[in-house]
Design a binder for these strands. Structure first.
Lengths: 237, 237
DNA sequence: CGGGCGCGCCAAGATCCCGTCAAGGCGGTC
DNA sequence: GACCGCCTTGACGGGATCTTGGCGCGCCCG
């Protein structure tokens, strides 16, 4: 969830923004002074900061400069001042955007989305951990105890499909459709060949698979280390 | 040097912007139609794009959508339209900023600086260290044991793309889109030629590459010295 | 208890993909 | 105007990969 920090000294502005953002599914915090704002950015690590220029105590521009000393969080400035000089000052201090009051709430929300979008890509780090190997979906590779395992395109595609639904049952039809296309729904032969291949490369004992599980008559399942099984206990004999 | 692409169909606007930007030390290119704009983004690799909404032929928003399909270059929209709906549309299509005409040139320049600043950190983040050479993304050059290696523009562009996703697999499509543009998605010939060229210049034994790895049927990967250990970044605590 | 079905396994042929080389065209520079 | 470097394009082995068929075994069902 995207976290937004709203900084303004006028309570009704803060209230309006916080309400609108919360309705849109953002997680919102607020601050009413510059000092508090800097503190909250440090503590809360928001994904986007909305800051008013006319703050009591330390000025909005000083807040921007302070934050920019150690963070690159996107900052959107709100201000009643429309003078070009003010905009240039704020932007050059490190702000990402400058919106003049009065503003439309939809416009501001769109600018928040634009700012949040820029930081989004860093968030995703997907790795599926099985008993004897790790599937890194982002880097598109698999590692086991002896290092990186080389997979062919089709092998990877099958494993990737299982990994994206880890611990869930994936039917043969799903797999065949995903990897070979809708025309191959019935070619269960392919699955047998490639599951065997994957087990040979990834399972310590391919004849007794621990992670690449067959669900007879239905499909296959990739069991993760924590995911699949009930918490405590005895391994099934 | 920061490279800016200006897209507008009114010659006097283009001229004014180009002049102002050049005086400030930017390297500026321009386009007057949407098609030309997309082409120039693909070829010229600008650091910032300034685009007018009211273009003949394909619309400004469509240009944004097309570019966003394969590039994350900052886009600043210019428009005479001040309606909130237009702003939201452009921003949600992928624009980073929206400036209403008439605008102050100083404000626009400040917004260009703000946009350019955001891409800078990624570039200065640095140097990708492979087994036998070092790719310095900021300085735009490559060094191996015998010193600096001369690369042609296209060679560099390919290597740069791999380096920006080091240890991750980059698909053939991604590479072709980044380097040659969206229209060249299927020209895998180019990749073979240029990967061979890069290996000849950078690998100690080009026939047995250690860093520029082929993933058959999928794409290529630049392997760094440490390997793919997740070095996920976070700001200092 | 017997039969059928589904799964694991193996091997061989056909196909696709990659690396390599070389020549032609284009634009920029001297 | 000539030269040079770079990009584009085509063709050609060699090797990895996909496809395909067949066989035996165990489990479920009749």
């Amino acid at each position: 969830m995207t976290r937004v920090l709203v900084v303004d000294d006028e309570p009704q502005i803060v209230r309006a923004l916080v309400t609108n953002l919360r309705v849109r599914g953002y997680e919102v915090a607020s601050a009413s002074t510059g000092e508090e704002a800097v503190e909250r950015v440090a503590r809360g690590r928001p994904d986007v900061v909305i800051v008013d220029l006319g703050l009591p105590g330390i000025d909005g521009v000083e807040v921007i400069e302070a934050v920019r000393g150690w963070s690159s969080v996107p900052i959107i400035v709100l201000s009643v001042r429309d003078a070009e000089r003010d905009k240039v000052r704020a932007l050059d201090a490190g702000a990402d955007d400058y919106v003049t009051k009065p503003f439309g709430i939809e416009e501001l929300l769109a600018r928040v989305r634009a700012a949040a979008r820029r930081v989004a890509p860093a968030a995703e780090a997907a790795a599926v951990v099985a008993a004897d190997f790790v599937v890194d979906l982002a880097a598109r590779h698999v590692r086991n105890a002896s290092g990186e395992v080389r997979l062919t395109p089709t092998e990877w595609h099958v494993l990737e499909t299982l990994a994206r639904h880890h611990d869930k049952l994936v039917t043969q039809r799903q797999l065949l459709q995903q990897v070979w296309g809708p025309a191959y729904e019935t070619e269960t032969n392919y699955l047998r060949v490639y599951m065997a291949q994957l087990r040979r490369k990834l399972e310590p004992d391919p004849s007794r698979p621990r992670s690449l599980i067959t669900e007879p008559g239905i499909g296959y399942r990739l069991r993760t280390r924590e995911g699949g099984q009930p918490t405590s206990g005895g391994p099934p004999a």
